[in-house]
Simulated scan of single mutants.
Amino acid sequence: MTDYLRAVIDMIGPSNDFRPDAAAWLRLEGELGRSLPEDFKAIADRYGACQINHHLNLLRPTDGWWDLGTWMRQISRLWSQEKVVQQDVEPRLDPRVIFGLPEITFGSAQGLIPLAGTDQGHLVFLAPQAHGVPDGIAVMNREGEWAGYALSFAEWLYRYLAGEEMFGGDSAVFYPGPVHREHFPAGPGQGSRVVHGPPRGMADSAVGPAPARSERPRP
């Protein structure tokens, strides 16, 4: 059985910015009313605040300018004001069905909690369940379409970096070579810092069967 947290760390590479802050996570989890996945916290502690492979932004609750809790609240407020369930949507594409929720809410233990996003408009959430599996991954792409993955965050991220369709149908993009990581400026007058991971071969037999998901059928 693959240890996806270890696999993600091996793929992205070492970090000189590893700053775990258990108290900061406890404060954030107290605000949310539930704990966050340990693998997500471990990855965020090791690499945030940064952009991975040119698009995926990863934050943590210890970064001043780039505070995960602030971003979570902003995203939750924004999407709480938007219509997120399309009228007459098919049940298999309905986020209420995918995530087992009577209504879609954001930023609380009973709803979807923002974990990460991309500069292309895609969002990644922690869901109470996805396809009946506890603590699944919910994604919404820039067209407002939903997909659910019965995966841990670490496995979702590993598969995303391996070029699988992790934002619904036709979303696969693979960047060959080492993982590109750009750390955001820590304060005024500071620049970003680019780091590359180790060489990798992506013909990886450790990646198992395709994850469970719901998505729009291809034309």
Rank of each mutant, 00 (worst) to 15 (best):
G169D: 12
R159L: 11
I137D: 00
A138M: 04
A130P: 01
Q120F: 14
G163M: 12
E155V: 09
G148I: 01
V139M: 08
Y158V: 04
A147T: 09
A162N: 09
M166S: 03
L161I: 11
G117E: 15
A154P: 00
W146V: 00
L126F: 05
L123E: 15
L157V: 07
F125H: 05
V139P: 01
Y158I: 04
D135S: 12
G163I: 12
E143W: 12
N141C: 08
E165Y: 05
G168S: 07
A130W: 02
F153R: 05
D135H: 12
G132Y: 06
Y160F: 15
Y158C: 05
A154V: 07
E165N: 15
V133Q: 13
H122K: 11
H131T: 00
T118D: 11
A138T: 03
E165Q: 14
L157P: 00
P128N: 08
T118R: 04
W146P: 01
E143R: 10
A127I: 02
G132R: 10
R142D: 14
G117Q: 12
A162F: 10
N141V: 06
I137E: 01
F167I: 06
H131R: 08
Y160G: 03
L126Y: 02
W156P: 01
A130E: 04
A154N: 09
G148L: 04
L161T: 04
D119Q: 10
A162E: 13
L161G: 04
P128V: 06
L157G: 05
E165L: 00
L157H: 06
